[in-house]
């Protein structure tokens, strides 16, 4: 045991310098060539900057609304609801979200509401919506903003992100980009 202690301490220190120091600095150095110097991907609109990957809360009827979030989309923290699939309080909450949505979106049948719109994501910061979750809001948005439904629908189509290489994963919409584009639509 004894003969191992000092070599082990010294080896630990060498590992500390190398893996904690040199490795980190090497990645940091390369990050300076990445978009926005590794401080997170940014998009700008009207002089404001936003993190394009981090979801924002949209609750106002004039915007496409975002998914529910356990942390209210404040990225100082993050997390999911951790509610189990059979939890009665949770199921009542989902039912209430469906009812609220139907009140805000008259003329929509509940079979058109996709489940992602009434369930919270794992991070509480999901930047995306499913295509159906955007489409089901077209009627409301067109009415409030005085736009033709066809134009709003066209906006959804042009903001739809295809699966990776068209083959792998889900089809989705970046909600922030969609709402920025919506603000610009006349």
């Amino acid at each position: 045991m004894k003969s191992n202690i000092f070599p082990a301490i010294k080896l630990t220190f060498v590992c500390l310098v190398f893996f904690m120091g040199i490795y980190t600095l090497a990645v940091y150095g390369i990050a300076q060539f990445a978009p926005n110097q590794g401080k997170g991907e940014i998009i700008s609109s009207n002089g404001n900057t936003y993190y394009s990957n981090v979801g924002q809360s949209f609750t106002d009827d004039k915007y496409f609304i975002s998914r529910p979030s356990a942390v209210g989309y404040n990225a100082a923290g993050s997390g999911g609801s951790n509610k189990g699939p059979s939890n009665p309080d949770y199921l009542a909450e989902v039912q209430a979200r469906i009812d609220t949505f139907l009140i805000h979106n008259p003329g929509i049948d509940k079979s058109e509401i996709p489940s992602d719109l009434v369930t919270a994501s794992g991070s509480g910061l999901d930047p995306n919506l499913s295509v159906q979750a955007a489409k089901v809001q077209v009627k409301r948005i067109a009415k409030i903003r005085g736009l033709a439904e066809g134009n709003v629908l066209q906006l959804i189509v042009s903001n739809t992100e295809q699966p990776l290489f068209g083959l792998f994963g889900t089809e989705k919409i970046n909600l922030l980009k969609l709402n920025i584009a919506l603000d610009k639509l006349k």
Binding site: R67, G80, S81, N82, K83, P85, Y90, L91, V94, Q95, I98, K110, S111, E112, I113, P114, S115, D116, V118, T119, A120, S121, G122, S123, D126, P127, N128, L129, S130, Q132, G169, T170, K172
Partner: peptide, 17 residues
């Protein structure tokens, strides 16, 4: 509850995955 679950069980999941 009568809503669409075309993406499956989405509580705690991210759309991009």
């Amino acid at each position: 509850m009568g809503i669409a679950q075309s993406y499956g069980s989405m509580e705690g999941k991210e759309i991009r995955f």
